[in-house]
Design a protein around this nucleic acid. Structure first.
Length: 484
RNA sequence: GCCAAGGUGGCGGAGCGGCUACGCAAAUGCCUGCAGAGCAUUACCACUCCGGUUCGAAUCCGGACCUUGGCUCCA
């Protein structure tokens, strides 16, 4: 398969370093607040990366760090009068709940920065020994002038990087040198002993200490959003390649585009900051996943209510087809349909849709193109059902294809688990029985051609959010719209 | 200023050298008591601009313009 690497800017053939094993690392959140829908975009995408790589037979280990030692956490905790650890653990828990709610379920291990201090200290020590880092009164810094490749990922030269907006720490040798260890004491929970005195790690070092610990000096894929390319990922390259002397740190750098809101970057000052929790109050997780995956992962996407609405409706079309397949299969159970069987013989099989879907995914995770294949399958199956030219085998195959595609994308295409909650007519509860009763009465009215009353029942149920759909041969079905 | 990603039909969004997706919305027809769903067809076929390469460019090259982001907080 082909994967675009930020380093080369090109699609390259993906082969893991170790046989069949794929080591995947994605920068996790700094847990000082609720995660927002921009995080969700990135993490949903990499969840699909893991799902797909597993589907095509790789053994994937997906590692994510949790930044639970950080200035923002300390500041926020002080503001709220609670301990940094309590704050961090609280939002870490919420983050995990959010991921669960979004169907992001393929992360094998979350590594907390605070639980890898020994590894961090070890790596800093080796950097100093090799002359890539130095100690001052304020901390330990990486000397970028000693590492020739600095800037290679973001395509910037050292001269470009001389320009800076924040006044650099005066003890640093070069303005671009970044912090490995901060000599600060902000309370026992965020202060550790080190050969350079008490303090805490800088932001970049935790990731390479963690990946070195679990993956070694080199691994397959490192993911994150575009804004992390510089300086964060640049710093990771410098730290690990300087420590180990092995290049490259990572074979494939993958970066997701931004999620904007009405064309603007999401930010608290603009008031367009949407947390995952708030979003899920209004939209179901599957619709959001569909929205995320209907654009290419490197393109910017624009979040809006109408975009989400459109995604919901598009997804609904796939689910309608899944429903039609089930119903047709049910019908076949009671009566054999020789005609359909025979009519289909002239038709091609459905396997071409699997090929199209997998080809799209194989080409740098082109999820919009993969979704196209899903819709083409849907149309073909609908057509065949309508024309009575589909065999039982093809119905089963189509159902399996939809299931497989849904599993890879982490979206439920089947009716049963639909977010909109579509009930079929065999509810056990009393409400369901009442609705059944009304449908029965209405059916009798229809048989008597009392259209006025029949329509009134349908309209009034519709006002209650219960939508009736009449079938040709009586009975019919209904669905309950939970939202709105 | 430097670096990066973009500018495609009413909207969303693929394609990245030649037949133009896919979805949403719309129209007409079939089906239906009506509606919905489904199916078929349609809208006469859009690619920021200006040059160039080519038999042929949305797609390659050069140049402009615009948008968003990064430049040591950031998914």
């Amino acid at each position: 398969m082909l994967i675009n690497s930020t380093m080369s800017g090109k699609k390259e053939l993906f082969l893991p370093i170790h046989d069949n094993r794929v080591n995947l690392f994605v920068c996790g959140p700094t847990v000082y607040d609720n995660s927002h829908i921009g995080h969700a975009r990135t993490y949903i995408f990499f969840d699909v990366v893991a799902r797909y790589l597993k589907h095509i037979g790789f053994s994937v280990f997906y590692l994510q760090n949790i930044t639970d030692v950080d200035d923002k956490i300390i500041d926020r905790a002080a503001l709220q009068g609670i301990s940094p650890r309590l704050l961090a653990r609280t939002f870490e828990e919420k983050y995990r709940e959010d991921m669960q709610a979004l169907g992001v379920t393929n992360i094998n291990y979350y590594a907390r920065a605070s639980e890898h201090i020994a590894e961090i200290i070890s790596q800093i020590g080796r950097l100093i020994e090799k002359g890539f880092a130095y100690e001052t009164q304020t901390g330990v810094y990486f000397d970028e002038s000693r590492f020739g490749d600095f800037g290679k990922l973001s395509h910037q030269s050292l001269e470009d990087l001389e320009k800076h907006r924040i006044e650099p720490d005066p003890t640093k040798r070069n303005p671009g040198d970044f912090s490995l260890w901060k000599k600060r004491q902000d309370g026992p929970e965020v202060t550790w002993d080190s050969p350079w005195g008490k303090g805490r790690p800088g932001w970049h070092i935790e990731d390479t200490a963690i990946t070195e610990n679990y993956f070694g000096a080199q691994y397959d894929i490192h993911g994150g959003a575009m804004d992390l390319i510089f300086p964060h990922h640049e710093a990771e390259i410098a730290q690990m390649e300087a420590t180990s002397g092995k290049k490259p740190l990572v074979r494939f750098w993958m970066h997701t585009g931004f999620l904007n809101v009405n064309g603007e970057k999401m930010s608290k000052s603009l008031g367009n900051f949407t947390t995952i929790r708030d979003m899920l109050q209004k939209f179901d997780a599957d619709s959001f996943r569909f929205f995320v995956l209907s654009s290419h992962y490197r393109s910017p996407i624009d979040f809006s209510e109408s975009a989400l609405d459109q995604s919901r409706k598009s997804l609904e079309r796939i689910r309608q087809a899944a429903k039609a397949i089930e119903e047709e299969l049910e019908r076949r159970r009671t009566s054999a349909d020789e005609a359909s069987q025979e009519n289909e013989n002239a038709r091609a099989g459905l396997s071409e849709f699997r090929t199209k879907f997998l080809d799209a995914m194989d080409n740098d995770f082109n999820t919009p193109y993969a979704l196209k294949a899903v819709f083409e399958l849907v149309r073909e199956v609908n057509r065949r059902i309508n024309e009575r030219s589909i065999s039982k085998e093809s119905l089963i195959e189509a159902g399996q294809l939809l299931d497989d595609f849904g599993r890879i994308l982490g979206i439920s295409f089947s009716v049963a688990q639909a977010g909109q909650s579509v009930s079929s007519g065999n509810n056990e509860d009393k409400t369901g029985n009442l609705i059944e009763l009304l449908i029965d009465v209405r059916q009798k009215l229809r048989e008597k051609k009392d259209w006025a009353l029949a329509d009134e029942i349908r309209n009034r149920l519709s006002e209650q959010g219960i939508v009736l759909e009449d079938a040709k041969a009586g009975g019919g079905r209904y669905s309950i719209k939970l939202s709105e």
